[in-house]
Each structure stands twice: as structure tokens, then as C-alpha cells.
Simulated assay, not measured.
Amino acid sequence: MLTNGTEYTDEALISRIVRGETALFELLIRRNNTYLYKVGRAYPYGHEDTQDLMQDTFVAAYLHLGQFERRSSFRTWLVRIMLHNCYRKRQKWSAKHIAAAEIQPGMVPAFSRGSETDTNQTVMNKELRSVIEQALERLPLDYRMVFTLREMNGMNVAETAEALQISPANVKVRLNRAKAQLRREVERSYSAGELFEFNLVYCDAMVSRVMEKISSLK
């Protein structure tokens, strides 16, 4: 099994994958699993729907890898594909389905404090889970997505603006408003980075799903 080797940049991996080293795509999946998972959950979709959207996004990225023009980072390009898939799925859902898509207790993944290992993951208690669900549900989608990309995924203002196709000024405004609504209820107990972690227990499964799908396309 490949590891997330720091000796390869995304650009170097893409060049080698395009030339036929398909197995290296696993590294790009592992590097970006967490980012895409947070986007899907923030939209908000449940765990299973988010995984399906992630798979679709990775496969689409693989199929169009030769078209990646490097005008933005690979991560930004990938997030834009994920956002497009999330939006398209949302458009297909009825109002009833959207209401039913609220985060359910069994769908909330374990959170991590400073470590991604299973032994350090903290399962949220019912009261805190409820606080976070209610706080996030009250955020308008536009604010929730900016908060997710900037504070949870660590994208800078320019990357966020490009991913969402809005101005940098709008990114800053939306982020400030999102923080104002969330800080009191959420950041009092948990840092932004702890929300919606894609646990390592899911990472291997996603790699297997995507690589199996890619193999079937040959």
C-alpha cells in the first residue's frame, strides 16, 4: 500500500499518473479525503451520501486529470468538483429529502484532538452533538461553505474565492458572519478543525472504492 509520501508534490504525482502510473492516484485520494468529507458534511449530506459524492468526485478528477491546467492548486480544483456534485445532488432532492438530510446521531464521525489515530478520537456526547447540529443548521449555506473551506479545510481567501466563484471580499464578509453565529455555541468547546473529521477508519475504504472504480474504467 502506498503512503502519503511527502517526497511527491501534487504536480509531480499528476504528471506521473497522466503518463500511466495509475496506482499513484491513491496518494491524491489520501491527501484530500478529509477536505472533501468536510465539504459534503457541511452541505449538509449524511455520511453515506458524502462518501458517494467523494467517490464521484475522485473518479471525475481522475478522468479529467489531463485537463487540469495548474492555474489553481489541485486541492482547489478538486473542491470545486465536489461542490458541483453537491449542488447537482441538492437540486435533485425534493424539499422533503433536504429536510430529512439533517445530520443524524449515528452519522456523526468521531472527533480528534490533535491526532488522527483512532485511539485519540473523542466521540461527541449527545448534548454537544445537539449544540453543533443546531448551530450549523442555522447557518445559511453560503456562510457554512465559506466557514468549512477557510476554517476547517485551511484554504486561504484566494483559494476559497476561486472554489466558490465569489470575490475575496465576499469570502471575508461571509466568514466573519459565520464565526459570529458559531463562536458562542461551538468554538467554546471545540476548535473548528475538529468538526466533521474524516476518520482514518474511513480513509482506506474510500481509497479502495475509488481505485476499484478506476480499475474498472480501463
Rank of each mutant, 00 (worst) to 15 (best):
L139T: 01
G106A: 03
P109V: 06
Q121L: 09
F147M: 04
P105M: 11
S130R: 03
T148E: 07
S112V: 08
S112D: 12
F111I: 05
S112M: 03
K126P: 00
Y143E: 13
N120F: 12
T119A: 15
R138S: 13
L128F: 10
L141K: 09
M124K: 11
I132W: 02
I132F: 02
D142R: 14
P140S: 02
Q134E: 09
S112Y: 10
A110C: 04
T122V: 03
P140F: 01
R113K: 11
R129E: 11
F111D: 01
D118V: 07
Q134Y: 05
T117P: 10
S112I: 09
E127K: 06
T117A: 15
E151Q: 06
I132Y: 02
A135E: 06
L141A: 12
D118R: 11
M124E: 14
R113H: 06
D118G: 15
N125K: 02
Q134N: 08
V131L: 12
R150F: 03
T148V: 04
L149I: 07
T119H: 14
T117L: 12
T122M: 09
P140H: 06
P109N: 10
D118C: 12
M145C: 05
Q134T: 05
T117E: 14
S112T: 10
G106M: 09
F147Q: 04
K126Y: 08
A135R: 01
S130D: 10
K126T: 15
T122E: 08
L149C: 02
K126Q: 06
I132L: 10
P105H: 01
N125D: 15
Q121M: 13
S130L: 04
L128N: 08
N120K: 14
Y143D: 14
D118I: 09
R138C: 01
G114Y: 10
T117D: 14
R144S: 01
V146L: 05
P109F: 00
L136F: 11
Q134F: 02
Q134V: 03
E127F: 00
M145T: 02
R144C: 07
G114R: 00
G114I: 01
M145R: 09
V131P: 08
N125A: 13
M107L: 08
S115C: 10
T148F: 06
P109D: 06
R138F: 05
S130V: 13
D142Y: 14
R144T: 00
L136A: 12
D118K: 15
G106V: 14
G114M: 05
T122A: 14
M124Y: 15
F147T: 01
S112G: 05
L128H: 04
R150S: 08
V146I: 03
E127N: 10
E116D: 11
L141F: 13
A135C: 00
Q134L: 03
R113G: 10
S112P: 09
P140E: 08
S115A: 01
R150H: 06
L141P: 01
A135M: 02
P140I: 02
G106C: 06
L141Q: 09
M145G: 05
F111W: 05
D118Y: 13
R144K: 03
L136K: 03
D118H: 13
